[in-house]
Design a protein around this nucleic acid. Structure first.
Lengths: 340, 340
DNA sequence: GTTAGCACTCCAATCGAGCGAGTGCTAATT
DNA sequence: AATTAGCACTCGCTCGATTGGAGTGCTAAC
């Protein structure tokens, strides 16, 4: 990408800044006046025409003001805007709302805070089970032939399912079995246990084959749930944005946000990078989100990427602020989870 | 409420039927023609004027057709419309989508199905933990001074939390403790254990007071979560309805649906009755839902009311169909959960 | 290279006319 | 006494035309 020269650069910034605030096409005179440019409107017009030529701006119709293109926003985000550091008082206020004592609840609170502050929709995944380290697998006897299998991970997430025995089993045997299996799989992240390996590890525990099969399946099922559950908050905020006043525009966006798989994909590609990712308009794979920008970040627990949190709003978004907030909330959420 | 006489009754039904289909004010001539009434439009007009007088219909403006009032819908629901039995093929199709093997997932599937079929938003609560019978409380030792407490109920929902011991404890002791507590609280619904009683029951288990306190608190915390988690599906469907084309109308509705407490209240009052409840427009306590109707039903597991499921849509709703569907899905969900 | 001046474009808001659906009333009909 | 035909009247809605204004692109002067 060609670097933009000083004044042209500044004008692009001014136009986008103005449009983000007003949601109205920006004219040459308006841009000049409202941002104290020391050049004539004619010059501004010339530069704007050039910026349009370059694909950064466009006109909704002839003889209207200019509006940024996705391309323009991209340049803006990459090199024109500076991330706003969240001010201390706001930090404090946000941190105060993160009071949860449970994983899922903490994620919910962080997502909600993000939605409220940005006035956009927010999305987040709960920590991914497969990345968590197994601490223990316990069989709680229910009757002579049934037990509940409980997995305890380092994140203390507990998942349980019934297993059925081929033949009656005593509580003591049940206990021994628990310990044997635990010993074999404890201390490793679930994700490291491949299907084949799992079969071997479990298979060696010999008798009570049926139970072991079931536990194997149970573990494998958890794999499939890889990205954790997904939460969406503040969907209704989309309707506050002027560009989504028409329900027919808003409807596809909200529909997309309701589909867990779609949202997962948004947050997905879970690269462990600590950078904030910004996907603008058509950069999103989802066609329904072609008028939206998605800003996401990964949160980390114990040094490992645990999940992601982000914001979905109109492409006309206060990027500096939102990026700062997403980064801060990802960090805060990580910290909060760390302490649990 | 005064019973309406035959013809007037029929006209009210025709007007509401027509309005539900077209979303347009219904005129005397249109009503007569489209529903094959064997009287003149003048007569229809007279009757409509009378129905307006009685508060069942109203005019958006002078010399427009008639639109039902909340009052009119109430009469319609109570005595004019017959619940549509869901046809066998549709039953089958719906049942096929309920494939979940877990409680929460089953509720989600049922809610989603309801949303898709009715083209409205749907809401549902997951089974209420406090109403579930405790089967077992188990302490899984983590280290010398920590364990995870797991509650297993008849619905096989498992909830875990860490507890800390005052002094080191062996795995065997841990086991004994589990069994002692389990013996005391097993077989009873959580909700029956009042605070006082709980203290007594637990207190008798003597030593390791700190753990017992924590378990007590754990149980009591679950009480507060009485209504189970709440799920909302198909919120975007609201935007498909002609009355919510304006985002400013839709926004408060969607906002309300996002607040778990609000939705809980909607589904709430969990009377164990198996009847479908219909709350029309201003009958809803929530002011944001004054243009909506909420149709809910309780679902039952093992003979006890376990949770609720329902539909939120415009007051102009296909009542016969929706009521039938809500009843059917509550039943189906109950059946599905029963089998788990 | 910059800017003033100007003709031109297009949207958005305003206005009025005409249409059509629908009403309420009155008088005639059954 | 209830029903119906007839009719004047009321609105909201859809147009087309008009107008104002914001904004552009171009040209020529600075």
């Amino acid at each position: 990408m060609v670097e933009l020269e000083g004044r042209r650069r500044q004008i692009l910034r001014v136009v986008i800044d103005d449009y983000i605030m007003t949601a109205e096409p920006v004219g040459s005179e308006a841009a000049r006046q409202r941002h104290g440019l020391d050049i004539s409107s004619a010059t501004v017009r010339n530069e704007m025409a050039a910026l349009e030529e370059l694909g950064y701006l466009q006109q909704p119709h002839h003889s209207a003001g200019r509006v940024p293109t996705d391309h323009g926003y991209r340049v803006y985000v990459d090199s024109l805007v500076t991330e706003e550091r969240v001010p201390p008082t706001e930090r404090l206020r946000i941190r105060r709302t993160l009071t949860a004592t449970e994983f899922d609840q903490a994620v919910e609170q962080a997502a909600r805070a993000l939605a409220v502050i940005t006035e956009c929709a927010s999305v987040a995944t709960t920590p991914q089970l497969p990345q968590q380290v197994v601490r223990h697998l316990h069989l709680i006897p229910l009757g002579p032939r049934h037990a509940i299998a409980v997995i305890v991970t380092d994140a203390e997430v507990v998942e349980g399912k019934t297993v059925e025995f081929e033949q009656p089993i005593t509580a003591t045997e049940c206990d021994r079995l628990s310990q044997e299996i635990s010993r074999r799989i404890a201390g490793r992240p679930l994700i490291d246990l491949t299907d084949g390996e799992l079969a071997t590890v479990i298979g060696q525990a010999a008798h009570h084959q049926r139970v072991l099969d079931q536990i194997g399946r149970l573990l494998r099922e958890r794999f499939r749930r890889l990205p954790g559950r997904v939460r969406t908050e503040g969907q209704a905020n989309i309707l506050k944005q002027p560009e989504f006043q028409d329900a027919r525009r808003a409807q596809p966006v909200l529909s997309a946000l309701e589909q867990a798989e779609a949202v997962t994909a948004l947050l997905g590609d879970g690269s462990a990078s600590r950078e904030v990712r910004v996907r603008i308009g058509s950069e999103n794979v989802l066609d329904e989100l072609r008028d939206c920008t998605v800003v996401t970040a990964t949160y980390h627990v114990a040094g490992r990427a645990a999940g992601a949190i982000g914001v979905v709003g109109p492409t006309r978004m206060r990027y500096g602020r939102v990026i700062g907030l997403v980064r801060f909330l990802a960090e805060s959420l990580g910290d909060t989870l760390e302490q649990l």
